[in-house]
């Protein structure tokens, strides 16, 4: 990330950290002390989170003032700027990987493990290798090879974990 963009990112992060630290602090001081049960006041479960909330708040404030001093608050959040980011090739590559991976996690336990893992690997490879401008028939070899890899890998993982490590697959 460029230094200018980093200052903007720091500005947003600092606001998040300040709120995060405050929330931790407020939740922690409301935690029970168990004195009514005869427990020592200093064994209260909220002591350490209160301290951590305060420290995160202070560090967040430090980051906030620093980013303000570096003019990190000048954020361009127009629709155009977001579009510009989204059409960048690295961002698209990242979003494809993120979408496919999170979808597979979401489907775990709902679809058979072997099918899901095989399907995930197969779609993942094709998402990056398949050229949409070319006809599918011309890319037969790629598809067959990807399918073979997906079946082989998903089968190996399922078999090894199920029968060698005795893990009940999700």
């Amino acid at each position: 990330m460029k230094p200018k963009n980093m200052d903007k990112a720091d500005f947003i992060t600092s606001i998040f950290l300040v709120i995060f630290g405050l929330v931790i602090f407020l939740i922690s001081i409301r935690m029970p002390t168990f004195r009514n049960l005869g427990a020592n006041l200093y064994s209260a479960p909220g002591i350490v989170p209160t301290m951590l909330g305060l420290i995160i708040f202070i560090l967040g404030m430090t980051l906030f003032f620093r980013s303000v001093a570096r003019k990190g608050y000048k954020i361009d959040y127009s629709l155009n700027s977001i579009k510009k980011i989204l059409i960048k090739r690295p961002i698209q590559r990242f979003l494809i990987a993120l979408f496919l991976s999170l979808s597979s996690v979401f489907l775990l336990g709902k679809v058979d493990y072997f099918l899901l893992t095989g399907g995930y690997i197969f779609i993942f490879i094709l998402a990056y290798e398949l050229d949409i401008k070319k006809s599918i028939l011309k890319q037969k070899a790629k598809i067959v090879f990807s399918l073979a890899e997906a079946i082989l890998i998903a089968g190996s993982i399922a078999l090894v974990f199920r029968y060698l490590f005795l893990v009940r697959l999700p």
């Binding site: 990987a97 893992t117 995930y120 993942f124 998402a127 998903a154 993982i157 893990v167 999700p170």
Partner: peptide, 18 residues
């Protein structure tokens, strides 16, 4: 990498679960 990374992710999933 597009052939290796899905395998790594699958191992991450089963590794976290095991």
């Amino acid at each position: 990498r597009q052939r290796l990374m899905p395998v790594i992710f699958s191992l991450c999933v089963i590794g976290a679960y095991a």
